[in-house]
């Protein structure tokens, strides 16, 4: 069964190789122009979580930015970045939207080699919040000692950030208990006392505040984690090597769409209603503003260093190996 698949993949590779040769023989003129058929792969499956940060993908689809590059992008909604990495490595997905903590773990553990080809989000004030119930005795971060903190996933970007926040306030991660709770259930868990504080992204914390009177305890991305890079778009190293033109075309379209998203929040609101279940009124409440156009190696290294500090990684990890540097050819 799998042998057959491998054979099929090999024959697909051969086909691509012949196609490339044919394209090469046909004269480099057309191949170098971005809009012509020089793409190694025109149809891209992108795995993404239904989060606001991937709005540029929807915008690029709707505005025809991908199409102008000769790309057809098919979004696949995934349940979590971790579960989708095998899909990326096996070629089922070409591009994966994932938070950096997951992606770095994947590379550091030697599961697969990933390249960051674009950034989705950098945390800005108002994007994320640690909330407590109305009238809660917890008024500052140091009050969290011995309390239950609701997070969406353990051992990931949220717990990492909260750990950093606890440290700046003189506590350690061991001083609190992290409780997993899906975001839609977080406000209810606060209300019912199942968690004492809850980490919420937009638009959950705005709704919790306006509907249940939940109160902001702290901005999680501040101090050591201010402007923290949250998530990006990954491809496998092999994909990057074999499809440089496709990757470049994707990056151009994404950049264009991200610029639209930054300059025109109404476009984002419209996009959100298409690929998430966030309605227009809720979308209007959101601050957003974290769309990012560049992958910054220094900032990304901060993520890896923080992961090392809180033992998410066994040894130092250099993010240089994940940077995508397009070859000149």
């Amino acid at each position: 069964m799998s042998g057959l698949r491998r054979r099929l993949r090999i024959s697909a590779l051969l086909l691509t190789a012949t196609a490339l040769l044919a394209a090469g023989c046909g004269g480099g003129g057309s191949a170098s122009s971005p809009n012509a058929g020089g793409l190694e792969k025109a149809e891209l499956n992108i795995g993404m979580l239904p989060l606001p940060e991937v709005a540029p993908i929807q915008i690029a689809i709707d505005k025809g930015f991908f199409k102008a590059e000769g790309l057809t992008v098919k979004p696949q909604i995934i349940q979590g970045g971790a579960a989708a990495v095998p899909d990326l490595l096996s070629g089922k997905l070409d591009i994966l939207h994932s938070n950096y903590v997951s992606a770095i773990s994947v590379v550091a553990k030697g599961v697969g080699k990933l390249k960051v080809i674009g950034e989705a989000w950098t945390a800005k004030p108002g994007n994320f919040a640690i909330m407590v119930k109305k009238g809660s005795p917890i008024t500052k971060v140091s009050d969290l000692k011995g309390k239950k903190v609701g997070v969406n996933t353990l051992n990931n970007v949220v717990t990492l950030t909260v750990s950093a926040l606890l440290k700046t306030n003189g506590l350690t991660p061991e001083d609190v208990t992290f409780v997993e709770q899906p975001f839609p259930q977080m406000a209810g868990a606060l209300e019912g006392g199942q968690v004492d504080a809850g980490f919420m992204p937009e638009p959950f914390h705005q709704i919790a505040a306006s509907k249940n009177g939940a109160v902001l305890l702290a901005e999680p991305f501040a101090g050591p984690t201010a402007d923290f890079p949250i998530a990006g778009y990954m491809v496998s190293e092999q994909f990057a090597k074999e499809n440089p033109k496709t990757v470049a075309a994707f990056q151009r379209a994404l950049l264009k769409a991200t610029e639209v998203a930054i300059s025109n929040s109404a476009e984002v609101d419209t996009a959100l209603t298409k690929y998430t279940k966030i309605d227009k009124a809720t979308a209007d409440l959101m601050v957003l503003g974290g769309f990012s156009t560049t992958v910054n190696e220094t900032r990304l290294q901060r993520v890896a260093d923080l992961m090392l500090e809180f033992k998410y990684l066994p040894q130092k990890f250099d993010v240089k190996q994940m940077m995508h540097t397009p070859s000149a050819s």
Binding site: L51, F183, P184, A208
Partner: peptide, 9 residues
């Protein structure tokens, strides 16, 4: 899964 994106999820 998609409903997780909404506060009314």
């Amino acid at each position: 899964v998609l409903a997780e994106s909404s506060p009314e999820g």
